[in-house]
Structures are given as C-alpha cells and as structure tokens.
C-alpha cells in the first residue's frame, strides 16, 4: 500500500493500481473535508447573523 512496504515495486502495475487508489481516496477525502469546513463556516456565519 505504501512505497516503504518491502514488497513495493516501482513498476507499472503498482503505479496504475495505487495511482487509482490514491486518486479516489484524495477525491473522497477532499470532498468530505470541503463539506465539513464549509458547514462549519456556514454554521458560524449563521450564528453571527443571529446575534445581529
């Protein structure tokens, strides 16, 4: 899974497989992070607006 596992090889099968994996994980991770940050910002903004 990681280049420091001893069975890792810098060959095409590893690059294709793990490339796709990390690409997918990045999209999901970034998407989720975006949602959480945006929601936190929205929540604070709403609270601020409530105070005014």
């Amino acid at each position: 899974m990681f280049p420091f596992s001893f069975e890792w090889a810098w060959d095409i099968p590893h690059l294709v497989f793990h490339g796709a994996l990390w690409y997918v994980l990045s999209i999901v991770g970034l998407g989720l992070t975006y949602c959480i940050i945006k929601s936190a910002v929205d929540t604070f903004r709403e609270e601020d607006n409530g105070h005014h």
Binding site: V24, I27, V28, G31, Y34, C35, I36, K38, S39, A40, D42, T43, E46, E47
Partner: peptide
C-alpha cells in the same frame, strides 16, 4: 443541529462527485 443541517446540505450539493467516484469504484 445547525452544523449537521449545513453538512447535510453541503454533502447533497456535491453528491455527484461522490456518486461518480462510487460508479468508478
């Protein structure tokens, strides 16, 4: 809960991205 309300809304908004990833997988 305001945060969850927003989270649900925001997740719905970019659901196509997650769905597309799901289709690929």
């Amino acid at each position: 809960v305001p945060f969850l309300h927003h989270l649900s809304h925001n997740m719905h908004r970019i659901m196509a991205v997650f769905a597309a990833t799901g289709v690929f997988l």
